[in-house]
Design a binder for these strands. Structure first.
Lengths: 186, 186
DNA sequence: TCCGATGGCTAGCGAGTGTTAGCCGCTACC
DNA sequence: GGTAGCGGCTAACACTCGCTAGCCATCGGA
């Protein structure tokens, strides 16, 4: 259903710009050229729109992570690829990432708990990556948070039209990340 | 007026937990033991509450930054102190920082522009700090964003009751930051 | 040609919102 | 002991919102 997809895309843009609570069904409708009530022919509810967006975001983020990590057995290379995927995801899906981080509180139970669990799992996977490698950090947990924050920040400031290309930004962030955990002695 | 302060504190907690739009004046009133309409004897409006919170946050953040940087002339030491102040602020004022980052969109003009300008100024000051020192980064701008993101992340995950003390967390983050910009060769 | 589904629309319900108006008890002060 | 005013309160206004009900035009397939 391509109309449903258009609605989700419009909702994403509006949620990112104004926030979930401040966005009205009439706004979303207007963005796809129909009236508010007509949306209910395509989606179940406003909350459902948010749930769909957030779970999809976490699903593809974790999928990209698994693909990236699976490609190598070397701990340093695995972390490098994980950070690359993490940063690249936040560059390519800025709005999804932004909504995912800022609208957790608008999620009703049990969806909130589900998404939070997914996020915790993702963080744990970074922690494991750091633990298993020849890295030098005081606190593994803090290091994992630092790597995650480094990428999530992109959701705020990254712009596709910026002077640096996606690859340049990703490379630079990966470099920062590796320095941070004490790899990359050169 | 100590009642006004209590109201601002309650509003801060509620804005952080539920978001500005989802928080009602009745909620804020209940948190300080009065009814919603009675709040208007102490504050001008709900929006005014948010404006006050956000401008105060930026003011004290910038003040702490200036104090920290003023204490030394050595570029590395200046950056170290700036990061220390930045991280410490986000640990001590978690909620303010969280609201400051997530409710920018709930700010009506011209306040939004004012606060954004203040934030840009703050970022620029980090950029200058990096430019003027013996650091090694590909992009100064990206490095400044990275340092800022490193501290702002605390707003999400830091808890006072955590196993690491404030000082331990700050030291660790400062270490990460200095490694990131290529200082701290040891 | 008829029919059922699809997907728009308007009207409207019911709940909730920020804010104002106006009332009243308490307290401080002359 | 009167009174000004501070700071509570309830009632109510003027919306707004998500969502449902019910109507109707279009159109593909039997």
């Amino acid at each position: 259903m391509t109309t449903g997809e258009a609605i989700r895309e419009a909702a994403l843009r509006l949620f990112a710009a104004r926030g979930y609570e401040a966005t009205t069904m009439a706004d979303i409708g207007a963005a796809v050229g129909i009236r508010g009530p007509s949306l209910y022919k395509h989606v179940a509810s406003k909350q459902d729109l948010l749930v769909e967006l957030m779970t999809r975001t976490m699903d593809t983020l974790i999928a990209r992570h698994r693909e990236a990590v699976a490609g190598s057995a070397d701990p340093v290379e695995r972390l490098r690829r994980a950070v690359d995927a993490h940063v690249r995801f936040h560059a390519r899906h800025r709005l999804e990432a932004f909504v995912g981080a800022s609208e957790l509180r608008s999620l009703t139970e049990p969806h909130r708990t589900t998404v939070l669990a997914r996020r915790a799992e993702y963080e744990r996977s970074f922690r494991t990556l750091i633990e298993r490698g020849p890295f030098d950090v005081g606190s593994v947990r803090l290091a994992s948070y630092a790597l995650l924050d480094l990428g999530m920040g992109l959701a705020t400031w990254y712009r596709e039209e910026g002077e640096l290309s996606e690859n340049e930004v990703v490379w630079q962030q990966v470099e920062f990340a590796l320095r941070l955990v004490g790899a990359h002695p050169a």
